[in-house]
Design a protein around this nucleic acid. Sequence first.
DNA 1: GTCTATATGCCGATAGAC
DNA 2: GTCTATCGGCATATAGAC
Lengths: 202, 202
Amino acid sequence: MRRRGTVTRRLIIEAADALFYGEGVRGAGVDAIAKRAGVTKRTLYYHFASKDELIAAYLEARDQPTLKRLKNAMRAKDLASSVRALFKLVGSSGILPTWKGCAFIRVIHELAGQPGHPACVLARRHKKGLEQWFEEQIEAAGISKADERARELLVLMDGAITQMLTHRDPIYAEAALRAALVCLGLEGRPRARSKTAAHVYR
Amino acid sequence: MRRRGTVTRRLIIEAADALFYGEGVRGAGVDAIAKRAGVTKRTLYYHFASKDELIAAYLEARDQPTLKRLKNAMRAKDLASSVRALFKLVGSSGILPTWKGCAFIRVIHELAGQPGHPACVLARRHKKGLEQWFEEQIEAAGISKADERARELLVLMDGAITQMLTHRDPIYAEAALRAALVCLGLEGRPRARSKTAAHVYR
DNA sequence: GTCTATATGCCGATAGAC
DNA sequence: GTCTATCGGCATATAGAC
């Protein structure tokens, strides 16, 4: 009987995570995943009915840890600091060659032709959950129309992630941070920011 | 001798465009592309040395038309109207089932493990070109630090596209539009009150 | 529950005729 | 330049022993 807590099952998901994230859910094959997990393909197919199911399990396993990591980065009391930490995280992660963007967005893009795929459903739920948490944080900071601000923040985060994956240049995470602070009303548009100061980076 | 203007070559690229964009560059095979183009695989491989080269040609063929379409949408004299038109376009496109996001961003995500792939190089160049054009428009509107504002606009656009592909809900394009107008200083937003101040009203 | 071995088909790419 | 025919490999998935 298939249970969800099996050691073998966990090993397979860990291997899938490494390969699906590293090479894409279409680029990585079950053969390589089974080999990395140290099991045979037959064992893999005992625990997962299909590759599609394994892809869904891969995202399912990433859901809470990813949220937890973001919440931990944004644990400051004041919202401005939290938002700065968020985009600092995006910028610093984005310059690492091993970083390949957001796993959920990657799946949405790779499986754009199959929006009903279980993994796509999970990805949408993950992003909705994050949006809702953003909204709670913004509301707790006493900012009105928190739902609108949360969507703006989410758009900026995913836009920053996309640009980081594209150009691997923190300048885009910084752009997103500036935009987020302005949107949230936490920082006015600087009128006379010294050009030299603004260009310290790079 | 292989020339770039051949009718056959164009037919193949058109078929590739439909299938690569519809099912992903990894999801679509050369078999299906050749069939759709009405040629044999051997002919396809006469015109393109490899599938990777065909993928690059597919993006290459999309580069100028995509830029042109965006410039046409943003042809208004005043920047605010142009920006509104941009995100209106993203929102209205994004609810069409046939729309599958930005072809360039899709490739970046699908080939995240191969940043040196010719198609990835083209995708980066395309986005850089768009960013530069944004900068020119913003500068022409008399807004300072146009380079920073252009990056913010680009991040918002790609973030909106990503969210549209994820949720198919124009509410995210609208969020990005609001953020863009605030960032460009085309629409004000009052600074947030402190949390204690907010408590006065509760 | 895990194994060895294999079914079956599609993948990208090629040989050689015309 | 386009065709028919096909290669070798890897894809997902399965049969049946233990």
